[in-house]
Computed example of a mutant assay.
Amino acid sequence: MGRAASKPFDPPAGLDELREKDPLVRMRYPDGHIGWLATGYSTVRSIFADQRFSARHELVHYPLADVGQLPPAPVGDMTGLDAPEHTRFRKLLISKFTVRRMRELTKRVEEITTDCLDAMERKGGPVDLVEAFAQPIPSLMICELLGVPSADRDRFQQWAKMMTSELSDQQAQEDAVVAFEAYMAELVASKRAHPTDDLLGDITASDLTEEELTGVSVLLLAAGLETVANMLSLGTFALFSHPEQLAALRADPELAPQAVEELMRYLTIAHTTVKAALEDVELDGKLIKAGDSVTISTEAANRDPLRFPDPDTLDLRRKATGQLGFGHGIHQCLGQQLARVEMQVALPALLNRFPTLRLAVPVGDVAHRANPNIHGLHSLPVTWDEA
């Protein structure tokens, strides 16, 4: 099931009816496996928090196509690990997202956002908001987090763009991955020899191998870039489609923290996760047997009226506390606080710098990404009235 072109911000048709009928139902996977689909908020939250469900790639059946058995997660990718292997990475990394570091990074988010807006203003409209605003902000913030030298940041951004773009051909993407991994291996070695005051500099003093450190860097790039870049572009598009909500955020920038939580709930760009039961688990009066895959529809859970009244309405004044856009449990997004800061700073700044900001193309011409795992935009042409 895909999102309807006429309702680009809503989950695929039929998910709400399934959830209303039963929040946990049997599901046939493309390879013939009979597993489960979870759509209710409480059910999804319970599965996320239950370590009897595994995140290991090689144990799950893929819900969208018969791709055979998946390989284990790449070295350093803790999203595909269970405890205690996952715990080893998580404990090390989460201790580096300190209040001091977040405060310092907040200042840099403000500076980078201002630089992007200045460049947009100098160029004049129309511009592609994805290229001019949504991608460079998280990309440069990852550079800050990892301590990438200023002279290397243009190359870093090009690799990041190539690796995450659906418009890149496979060979170009593979070449970018190889170049990026080689660069990060050199950076890790440099920081081991000469420690620096940044996250990567901190963790090079740990027991992680150079291969693991490189893998962690790739993970931070992928997770930190795609989520925020897609939220900034898709969130702006959603606000264009709800002018009363756009006006509310423009009039009251202090609304930004609530607005970000509501946009995360409403859009739920990372909309599905798959887990595998490690043992028999009884849930919602049903027996999920060891080895069963469970597809978790986070987008359906975030639209559950039992948790969020009138869930299909975008309301920036809603207290969307507990939204599952960042996940839940031991695999909850490690960099969620930085992602929140980026969005809370960037969206109000964009709207206030350009009071007449609007789409430069018809709504139907906005190019959505075809990625089945994460919702986003290829481009978002915008313009504004010159002062």
Rank of each mutant, 00 (worst) to 15 (best):
V228A: 14
R340T: 10
L70M: 15
R340D: 11
Q332Y: 10
T209S: 15
T87L: 11
E131T: 14
V60E: 07
A65E: 15
L359M: 07
E144T: 02
K123D: 00
H328M: 11
S241T: 12
E111V: 09
R307E: 13
L350N: 08
L334W: 08
R318N: 05
A367R: 14
A320C: 03
R153L: 07
R52A: 11
G376F: 08
A5P: 08
L59T: 10
R28W: 01
S168W: 06
A339Y: 10
L249F: 03
D22I: 05
D197P: 02
F48S: 05
R90Q: 13
P72Q: 12
R56W: 05
D198F: 02
G2L: 03
T113D: 07
P149R: 11
E226T: 10
P362C: 01
G322P: 08
D115W: 07
V361F: 03
G201Y: 04
P63M: 05
A346P: 01
V274A: 13
L249D: 02
L347T: 14
D118R: 11
Q245S: 11
T114F: 00
N373A: 14
F156P: 10
K96M: 14
L208I: 04
K21D: 15
S379P: 04
G291E: 12
R90D: 13
Q337G: 00
Q258Y: 06
K319T: 09
E261A: 15
K107H: 11
M102K: 04
L338R: 03
L306H: 14
T321M: 04
V260R: 05
H378N: 15
A13G: 07
P23L: 02
E144P: 11
R303S: 13
P8M: 04
C143E: 03
R317Y: 01
L146D: 03
L314D: 01
E131S: 15
D66K: 13
E244P: 00
V44K: 12
F237E: 03
L37Q: 06
Q171F: 00
M141D: 07
R52P: 13
I296M: 08
L129E: 06
G32L: 05
A179D: 13
S165E: 06
V99G: 00
L24T: 03
D118Q: 10
P63L: 03
G40Y: 02
L219D: 04
S241G: 14
E342I: 05
L140H: 10
F354R: 09
P74T: 09
C143S: 14
F89M: 04
D197N: 13
P355F: 05
S46K: 15
D280G: 07
G364L: 01
E226A: 08
K7H: 12
M120F: 02
E211I: 00
L220D: 05
T106Q: 14
R265N: 05
P72T: 09
A301R: 09
M141N: 14
V178C: 09
L117W: 08
L255W: 08
L283Q: 10
W159F: 14
P257N: 01
F48C: 11
M184R: 04
W36H: 01
D310R: 13
A320G: 04
D252A: 12
L213R: 04
P72Y: 11
E121G: 07
G2T: 12
E121T: 07
G40F: 02
Q337T: 06
T273G: 00
T356N: 03
H61L: 10
E17C: 06
Q332A: 12
K319M: 02
G68T: 01
V294E: 00
A346S: 15
A222H: 00
G201E: 08
M184K: 06
R358S: 12
G124V: 03
H368D: 00
